[in-house]
Amino acid sequence: MSLTDMEKAVEGIAGLRGVFITLMPDCLLFDSWTREDRWHAEDVASYFGDLVRANREGLKAIEAWAADMQVTIESADSLVVLREMEGGLVASMVFERSVPMGMVRLSVKRLLGRLAVSLPAIELEDRPRGERLLDYLERYAPDPHAVRMRVALQTGIPLGELEHPENLSGGQLDEIEESVKFILGLDTLAY
């Protein structure tokens, strides 16, 4: 069952292919509506959440960040608008590419207004660092099926302990973070 009245929120929005609400900072799917059966809403919500976070950090780095920032992506088939909302949420709205930009802006405004009314208040709860680290890795690792085994081998932390990341010690988490950086080829992680 939808947490939000999404059907009502998207009513009459022309050319809309999907809406994904991502709960930050963990990039978890909060709610979604989509016309496309083959899309995996959890994945889409996670990737767009990461994108918004990276965008925020990038803008902060050039001292250009503002709370009402909006990301627009134009792809061959779609026009995607990402927008931070109140309460640690991000809305990702996917339109057909043929919808004129002016119409998209108007629809985004209308949609955000409806969503703001219908979204419940959320109490943010920080998930354990270990969970966030491993979720982040599994989202981006090239071989997600094997990635926990890889971390176990690299760190020497038994698989059984990795199954319960909330119980890992600070030292173990530091080792896992190094492992994640190595696997993804990154100097720093934003998870």
Binding site: M149, R150, A152, L153, P158
Partner: peptide, 11 residues
């Protein structure tokens, strides 16, 4: 790291 042998074998 003998405890890791099983993981390696799995891989």
């Amino acid at each position: 790291a003998p405890k890791m042998t099983e993981v390696l074998e799995m891989l």
